[in-house]
Design a protein around this nucleic acid. Structure first.
Length: 179
DNA sequence: AGGGAGATTTTCT
DNA sequence: GAAAATCTCCCTA
């Protein structure tokens, strides 16, 4: 816990605060791939767009646990997305990591993505592909596993907007981007 | 540069 | 059986 205590304040607050934090995935060879979080979205059990809305299931159970764990899900038949669980035990909530600014492991990210540098980590499934995150990372505890989260090195301004790719509860301004 | 369709399979109804 | 917290390709301007 310690420096990650701010995650307990809830998904919306945490989503805004997470802008500027640095997320890294340690690779099999010990190297890191990752960078600064520049786009997030909040999801909460009171919100119809959230996977936790209809109660706890096998897939979403980690969202209902304590903050600081990883919720990874598979979607659209081919993509993984990575979330950081927030709030307290019994409350289903998490923050989706939508985009990073890479500063470590760029070469490996290029090999995995086969795309121009500006398209390596500019979407939630792209982040997972670049960092090598998949269902085997489900439920990992941040900073006690291969997934690392480090504090910002400078202050970031954020802007709130509607979330992307959802059909329910579209009006909430729960997407945060660095600006 | 931007929009639309297709890919593909897990999850829950 | 339908929808899905997406991405990429291909098309038109």
């Amino acid at each position: 816990m310690n420096s990650l205590e701010f995650l307990e304040a809830g998904a919306v607050k945490a989503a805004r605060e997470l802008i500027g934090w640095r997320l890294y995935a340690e690779q099999a060879d010990g190297s890191l791939v990752g960078g600064t979080i520049i786009e997030t979205e909040a999801y909460h059990m009171d919100d119809a767009a959230s996977h936790s809305y209809k109660g706890q299931t096998e897939r979403t159970k980690v969202m209902f646990g304590p903050a600081g764990y990883l919720y990874v899900y598979f979607t659209y038949g081919m993509h993984y997305c990575l979330n950081i669980v927030t709030g307290h035990e019994g409350i289903g909530e998490a923050v989706l990591i939508r985009a990073l600014e890479l500063d470590q492991g760029v070469d490996l990210a290029r090999e995995r993505r086969h795309r121009p540098d500006n398209e390596l980590t500019d979407g939630p499934a792209k982040v997972c592909q670049a960092l090598g995150v998949n269902l085997s990372d489900y439920g990992l505890r941040i900073n006690r596993s291969r997934i690392k989260l480090l504090p910002p090195t400078k202050k970031y301004k954020t802007k709130a907007t509607p979330r992307i790719g959802i059909t329910k509860d579209k009006d909430r301004l729960w997407r945060f981007v660095a600006c």
